[in-house]
């Protein structure tokens, strides 16, 4: 009756099958979220193209999407970064607007009444200022969350009010208009025939994707999001890494603000309020786990594209903008429901 204690029979609890083979299947298993998203996107595309081929499939339609989606895309990636550690950043829209407003205020100081005529140098100065706003705002969030240990939801709820409020104080309410030409290029320009915002988004998304999947920082971020306590026991400097992730979030938000104000040639304290919800939605849709530890730039990018196709399609079909809000919300609930159903099936 005595069990043998020879070491050889020990690892027999889980048989180890050969390591080779099934690469494609493994890819689908690991990235099933992305596969599902691509399928949804393709479906949206086909349905829209079938319903209104002449308008939907026009080059102009895709071009206008390529101008509009980058700001939301960047905000979604920003909120995904916060979600990776199980947090959230409700202040991204506030940061975006504050960055743009502060830059706008600077331009008005440099050339009162004629800020639209400012040169490249001033525009660069403004860009620098906007980015600094993003860094400082992100650092404030990071400090509150990583150091003072305030729940992210509440900390960023508070700072979003502060950022939006400061932008309101600076503008006094109405929108700031008249940005230098080189500034509006960020939102409206074309490089090699491609929308500049799109290029900016592609570069930044690739960079963040690279940081997350290929650097030690990205891996550590995922580990902290999976189990913050174990991360401490593994010797990860969790406070510093969480802090840095919020700084990065703030920086991305400020760049989104740059694009938004460049595109509209204006800055206001309450622009793009609905972006917060949409960014959360896109992040979750893109496979980000709001509890932390899972999420990818690729998923979020596809999700934002899918939703953009969807809304542009509905716009072409002359649905009101408000119904599009409804569709976004419905889409979020639907995807959550699908994920629940799939997980049940997998377990059962």
């Amino acid at each position: 009756m005595a069990l043998k204690t020879t070491p050889t029979d020990a690892p027999a609890t889980t048989p180890a099958p050969p390591k080779t083979g099934g690469d494609l299947r493994r890819f689908f298993n690991q990235h099933d979220n992305i596969v599902q998203l691509v399928a949804i996107t393709a479906l949206v595309f086909v349905v829209m193209a079938a319903l209104s081929p002449d308008k939907f499939l026009r080059y102009y339609n895709f071009e206008s999407i390529s101008f509009i989606f980058p700001e939301l895309g960047l905000l979604s990636i920003a909120i995904m970064l916060a979600m990776l550690t199980g947090g959230i950043d409700l202040s991204i829209v506030g940061v975006a607007n504050l960055a743009a407003v502060l830059a706008g205020t600077l331009f008005h100081h440099l050339a009162p009444g004629a800020s639209a005529g400012l040169g490249l140098g001033s525009a660069l100065l403004g860009i620098g200022l906007a980015l600094v706003v993003g860094l400082v705002a992100g650092a404030l969030n990071g400090f509150l969350i990583a150091r003072l240990k305030i729940t992210p939801i509440l900390a960023t709820l508070g700072t979003s009010q502060v950022f939006t409020g400061l932008a309101l104080v600076l503008t006094g309410g109405p929108a700031l208009v008249g940005f230098p030409a080189s500034w509006t290029f960020i939102g409206n320009g074309k490089l090699f025939g491609v929308a500049f915002p799109f290029i900016l988004f592609a570069v930044l998304a690739a960079a963040i994707g690279f940081v997350l999947s290929r650097t030690a920082f990205g891996t550590r971020l995922m580990l902290i999001g999976t189990n913050a306590k174990a991360a401490v026991f593994a010797g990860l400097d969790t406070d510093r890494i969480v802090f840095q992730s919020y700084v990065l979030t703030g920086l991305l938000a400020s760049i989104a603000g740059l694009i938004l104000s460049g595109r509209t040639n204006a800055a206001k304290s309450d622009y793009g309020n609905s972006y917060l919800l949409q960014a959360v939605l896109v992040a979750v849709l893109g496979g980000t786990n709001p509890a932390g530890g899972r999420g990818s730039v690729l998923g979020v990018s596809i999700a934002v594209l899918a939703l953009m196709l969807l809304s542009s399609g509905f716009q072409i079909l002359r649905f009101s903008n408000f119904l599009i809000d409804f569709i976004w919300g419905g889409f979020l609930l639907l995807v959550i429901a699908i994920n629940v159903a799939r997980n049940r099936k997998r377990l059962g």
Binding site: N227, K229, A230, A231
Partner: peptide, 21 residues
């Protein structure tokens, strides 16, 4: 479970957690 492992992460990442550098 609560202090040692990152359950949903791969074996490889769990092993390398402290020696990523």
């Amino acid at each position: 479970l609560s202090e040692g492992l990152f359950l949903t992460q791969s074996v490889s990442r769990n092993m390398l957690a402290s020696s990523l550098d």
